[in-house]
Design a protein around this nucleic acid. Structure first.
Lengths: 226, 226
DNA sequence: AACAGGTAGGAGGTCATACCATTATATATC
DNA sequence: GATATATAATGGTATGACCTCCTACCTGTT
């Protein structure tokens, strides 16, 4: 026997896909008007309700702009929202190695910049978080607090782009590592010393040292997870 | 006279906002089931069609999962898609300086890694693009080709995360700089030599040199735009 | 008691129709 | 010709109907 799973695409998905394709192929150009909802429903042989749901979804994603009384227009999008979303959500399929490689590259620099730009109160916050890391009871608590420290460092770069980037990385990381945290033994004990060095280096305003220690820390965590 | 513009929020937007708020406040928890569409329509005093449009939009954004026959469930989202989108689209409000600072940091490393990992055919592509840069007629053509080179370098890192990141940066950059390209004089003449050095360094597999030149190149372009 | 099949209710999926609100266009009036 | 009004086009919302799918429960057979 060899049956295939029947995968039915919903009407909504089909309409969304068709409109997207027409835009990508250049048949529908930015600035142009989409056929009216009634007309589209007629052309596609579906109800206006279905067309509306598809149009709203595409408007939400930044492809279309709907204006009551006028019509629906194709937007010129520099950033395709759903492609960004796709990139980040599909990233789960990539190896954790890639993410770690990127972290080593990025966060080393974050640490260096943070050391140069951090305000005293931000350094104080790092010290407080370090204490909480020391007092963390289990692996999960350690991870949450460790992540908080990384976010604080990124924020201390005072560059909103890097700060935002770190938030995204942090969320992906947390999502990815949660599954394998259980297997990570002694991760707390093995990392506290390095984290202490990191906070100390920042306190001493030694940016190169901070970068170096941050990279070591990430490599250590990576090793613990393997 | 001092009248305020009456901004009517559409029913759809109000519903979306209400559901989002309930999730953020923790009244609706991940894994829980949303009231049925008919019930929600009743609770909110709107039609089921409006509820459906809102629910579909939220499903599109990764907040909800709708399963025919079962119901609609609140997802546990590590990454809130619309927040990512928000971050990247709001970035336009930040200074170009931040983006450039981030580029210097990121792309220097991209160049270094690409030098280590690039396949010969990828290096050939870079050479071809360099020729096209030399032949570019106007500032805009120069920018397009230059961006293509940066994307190619990032791709040659063979790290999908960095590749994806560069795509996003490229799109933001293109969007941001288009407005001020006109004022950039002699940008082509002032940069060709550096770009030549960059491609050459990669060809020679000199990763530190590649990083150094890439940083110089970005700084030069930044200076040209001021 | 265990299993397979049948049945009914709930929930999302789709459709048709009607009417409201806004915008653009055509027409009439001066 | 300019202005004002009526008309048409288009998106926004509401209703009600029917379909498909999932779940839970019932029922008869073994």
């Amino acid at each position: 026997m060899s049956f295939k799973i029947i995968k039915k695409e919903s009407t909504l998905e089909i309409i969304v896909q068709q409109i997207k394709d027409q835009i990508k192929k250049g048949i529908l150009k930015p600035g142009e008007k989409l056929p009216s909802e009634r007309e589209l429903a007629d052309l596609l042989g579906v109800s206006r309700a279905s067309v509306r749901e598809a149009v709203q979804a595409l408007a939400f994603s930044g492809y279309l702009e709907v204006i009551q009384g006028k019509g629906t227009y194709i937007l010129e999008v520099a950033i395709k929202y759903d492609e960004i979303v796709n990139f980040f959500s599909e990233f789960s399929n990539y190896s954790l190695d890639y993410l770690m490689e990127a972290r080593i590259m990025l966060e080393g620099e974050f640490a260096r910049l943070a050391t140069l730009n951090a305000k005293q109160e931000e350094i104080d916050v790092m010290g407080r978080i370090f204490n909480e890391i020391c007092n963390s009871k289990d692996t999960n608590a350690f991870f949450v607090k460790d992540l908080e420290l990384h976010l604080t460092v990124a924020k201390a770069t005072h560059n909103p782009f890097m700060n935002g980037l770190m938030k995204i990385i942090g969320e992906m990381l947390y999502k990815e590592t949660r599954k394998i945290i259980e297997g990570a033994k002694n991760i707390r004990e093995n990392n506290i010393e390095t984290i202490k060095d990191l906070v100390h280096a920042i306190k001493q305003r030694n940016s190169d040292k901070a970068k170096e220690v941050m990279i070591k820390h990430i490599k250590d965590v990576k090793a613990s997870l393997e």
